[in-house]
Design a binder for these strands. Structure first.
Lengths: 332, 332
DNA sequence: CGCTTCGTGTTAATCGTTTAAATCGATTGT
DNA sequence: ACAATCGATTTAAACGATTAACACGAAGCG
């Protein structure tokens, strides 16, 4: 761990000034072939790597973008993050990752740290319903997935309402009589909008909304399991269910298996997000899905755009279309 | 995007020197209650957030740790990264994530930018078999998952040999006659060691190693599918298979389902890594697994330890024990 | 009363770059 | 022959923090 060589060192050994060294490194001015060669040789022999902190300080840019999410282990995020990373890398930016564990206080703290690191842009999937700490930051900001309602912000979203609407309508269309939903927390847009979509589909086809067939749960596997059990304990039992998040889907499916229900004979099943296992379970399950990698790319592209335009653009929202993938777990 | 206030600004408005401001922010010297209050007020009113670049430059530390992996969308990584993040956050470090897409050239490039950002430590799961670019860096370094053979490095590993050995032995013990393996690339330690473990188990129990029952494949779902097909086209067919990676497991399982084989009646199945779907497929599959989150924590703890001891410690290797989880897909 | 000690606060150098402005010798044009 | 121009290089001032060294008035002490 000896001290790393600096540009001063390079300059001294090559017998030139730091300005010249800087100029050959960045190709920013003409330097004679001779001195250029000499400098490059010294750089090589010292294993000199420029200090980007100093450069960033002087240049007022860091090529660093922050990402603030609840939990990378949530299967929704990895493909999205992959898309983001690819987008950023293409533009020479690096990603600094912070997890909030869905805790708004941690979110606020992490936000401060990121800002003090002078990130040039920030992408966030909200921890909770608290969003005031984002109000006056003057760093380009893109929300995705869990987004605030206010449209003063840039967002990359999913058509949550439509996803649930399309899914529920599909089930209704195949003549299931008692369509249930495993819904998410109502303080999150993703929870609310999907429940609304479900209700609207019911109402539009002349059905009633029966709260017995609605279970509102946290977005976890365990809650999905419990929620599904709760729904199947109703009498009469629902004959179809839409699980409005991937964790809920997994938990619900597990319960139905454990309890010995046959799908779709006893109950039709429509899940959320096209996870790896959707096609290998028995029966392969139908789902409402989004192009997650592409969403990630869009998020990355949007933040880069904002950074380059120095935040002059008006706020935009991109909303991705859901796609219904019909397999064997419900009417088809 | 107006210019952010600096410590100079705060000092000027509060009518003190920057030294004093710095001292109240860092609690590093006694400052009278009065001036402290005044300074804090100014900080508040300006929304002043210290510039960490300047601090890092002066202090020669960044509280930044690099992570170099092939692809966050590989289901192995998310839980590990979660563990790493938690470990780092606990110690006030941030994570900067780079993906190599398993390309050693990209790996080398990313390494350079990370070093130029003056990360204090680096964690890497190798892109390929090329590792020379890590040879002379004097930044604390921890390899995990895909690691170099040389024991001059710090590593957090998995007992790959043992995992395959234990798995294969289990299958042999339940009297399967023709135990096959879906093995990984032999230029990676994880591919090699698992194949060795399989062979060793066979030999030790007096069996022969039959290359007809070995399919060497890339670690992808598609290759798993093809590889499984290849194995089932042998005559006589294998009556048990060990799939030595999670992607291979998924692909292989998919093929067996598609081709209509019954598990374990037609073929016993032993998978790798305890993924979310292992328990909901039919039958629930037995697997060899590792505590991924805990591995992540260990990796994080190790790099922090190295950073704090300034790299004085001798190289260490931590190797996690595999655990055999027996479900319904093979003899039990 | 003179000397030290103490509590607060300031001065100024420093970290490692970038870059506008200055320097300096050689070349060019008239 | 002399000014103007040009190309290559250097000088030195930033960027925004930290901190050793110093300054200064008040208090303590023999």
């Amino acid at each position: 761990m000896k001290k790393k060589p600096t540009m001063q060192d390079v300059a001294a050994i090559a017998g030139v000034s730091t300005a010249t060294v800087s100029n050959v490194i960045n190709n920013t001015k003409n330097v004679s072939e001779g001195t250029k060669r000499k400098i490059l040789d010294v750089i090589e022999s010292l294993d000199y790597i420029p200090n980007n902190l100093a450069k960033s300080l002087k240049m007022q840019d860091t090529k660093l973008i922050g990402l603030l999410i609840s939990d990378i282990a949530n299967p929704f995020f990895p493909p999205v993050v992959r898309g983001i990373e690819d987008s950023l890398a293409e533009n020479g930016y690096n990603l600094i990752l912070c997890e909030t564990n869905s805790d708004s206080n941690l979110e606020r703290e992490n936000l401060r740290v990121l800002l003090s690191r002078r990130i040039e842009g920030l992408m966030v999937s909200l921890a909770g319903s608290e969003e005031s700490h984002f109000e006056n930051i003057d760093t380009p900001l893109v929300f995705f997935n869990r987004v605030p309602v206010s449209d003063q912000y840039n967002k990359v979203q999913v058509k949550n309402f439509k996803a649930a609407y399309v899914g529920t309508t599909h089930l209704i269309g195949h003549d299931y009589k008692r369509v249930a939903i495993l819904a998410g927390p109502q303080h999150l847009n993703v929870g609310r909008d999907r429940l609304f979509g479900y209700k609207e589909a019911l109402l539009e086809s002349g059905r009633e909304v029966d709260s017995n067939y609605i279970s509102i749960r946290e977005f976890t596997v365990a809650e999905g399991y419990q929620g599904m059990k709760e729904l199947m304990d109703r009498s009469p039992k629902p004959d179809a269910v839409f699980t409005s998040n991937n964790a809920l889907t997994l938990g619900a499916f597990q319960y139905l298996k454990d309890a010995g229900y046959r799908i779709p004979a006893d109950i039709a099943f429509l899940g959320y997000d096209d996870t790896q296992w959707a096609t290998i379970v028995d029966p392969p399950i139908s789902v409402v899905r989004y192009p997650m990698y592409e969403m990630g790319q869009a998020i990355g592209a949007m933040i880069i755009g904002l950074v380059k335009s120095r935040g002059q653009e008006p706020s935009r929202t991109i909303a991705f279309e859901p796609e219904l993938v019909v397999r064997k777990s419900c009417g088809c």
